[in-house]
């Protein structure tokens, strides 16, 4: 039985590499606690993939493994492999810093630095050692435009970013994450603290960004997953239950658990 209220977008054609991000038999532990059971999925280039599932099922854990943010936690362990464009992110020859420069991340709670709007946006370039003012200005403007924030902040680039509204701050964080042109953008519940208008803006933004970036988004909103994503992965208790085109997941899921979750019967 399909959910009548949710109208998923039709799946887009795969134009790039189908296994742009390739997760193979990947399992993950926090200390002794197994947070992810062995799972395999491929994320195609320039697609939006949504991770859905009830709280605590491991969506963030998997997402944070894609740019190795989980390295900050003590006592972690993994099995299997994650590869981006065929190169393992655990390759000893690959520096975690250069990985993170290729994979931007937007967090659930917006977290701008207590610096000016301008310095926030160009932060990733600054830490890469770019100091040419023209390049920085250019990057600042393009990323703010892409994040649909330019018109609102172009006159206050030197104001403290903490003076922006919540939605503006979140878009600023998106601008910051894309300023150094990463290939992948990870978003962990980017709209959970935003009103419907700001959420709408960010969803539009995701559509536009999709032409350049591969996007992985964690969301608790079925509607949002249906609206923005090409593919959806459903997790339950650390396990990947089903991964398919969004259309398929929402209209005709093959697993009973998936169906129960998206029709709101548990979660």
């Amino acid at each position: 039985m399909s959910n009548a209220r949710i109208q998923p977008r039709p799946a887009a054609d795969i134009t790039g590499r189908p296994d742009f991000i390739s997760i193979k038999n990947f399992g993950f532990w926090y200390g002794d606690k197994k947070a992810l059971k062995s799972m395999t999925l491929d994320i195609p280039e320039r697609h939006v993939v949504a991770f859905i599932g009830p709280s605590g099922c491991g969506k963030s854990t998997l997402l944070r493994n894609l740019n190795r943010m989980n390295d900050l936690v003590d006592g972690i362990r993994h099995e299997g492999d994650i590869a981006i464009k065929g190169q393992s992110i655990y390759d000893p020859g690959l520096e975690v810093i250069s990985l993170r420069r290729r994979v931007g991340m937007v967090f659930q709670k917006s977290n701008p630095f207590p610096k000016s709007v301008y310095e926030n946006v160009v932060f990733a370039l600054r830490v890469m050692g770019v100091s040419n003012r023209a390049i920085l200005d250019e990057a600042c403007e393009t990323s703010l435009r892409k994040a649909a924030l330019w018109e609102e902040v172009k006159d206050r680039l030197n104001d403290n970013a903490l003076g922006l509204s919540g939605g503006q701050m979140q878009r600023l964080c998106i601008a910051r994450a894309i300023a150094n042109r990463p290939e992948i953008l990870l978003m962990d519940e980017p709209c959970s603290a935003l009103d419907p208008i700001a959420t709408g803006k960010i969803e539009e933004l995701i559509h536009e960004l999709k032409t350049q970036f591969t996007i992985v988004i964690v969301t608790h909103s079925m509607q949002q997953a249906a609206r923005v994503s090409d593919r959806t992965a459903f997790f339950y208790l650390g396990e990947l239950i089903e991964y398919d085109t969004t259309e398929k997941i929402f209209m005709n899921p093959s697993q009973a658990q998936t169906e129960a979750y998206i029709s709101g019967r548990f979660g």
């Binding site: 977290n111 701008p112 990733a124 600054r126 830490v127």
Partner: peptide, 25 residues
């Protein structure tokens, strides 16, 4: 913690994070 993570996620090294984000804050 968000500030620290944001900095690291942007590709800053630990020292850059300390110098540019943690110390001023």
């Amino acid at each position: 913690r968000g500030m620290r993570e944001a900095s690291l996620a942007a590709g800053a090294s630990k020292w850059q994070t300390v110098r540019d984000i943690l110390l001023p804050a």
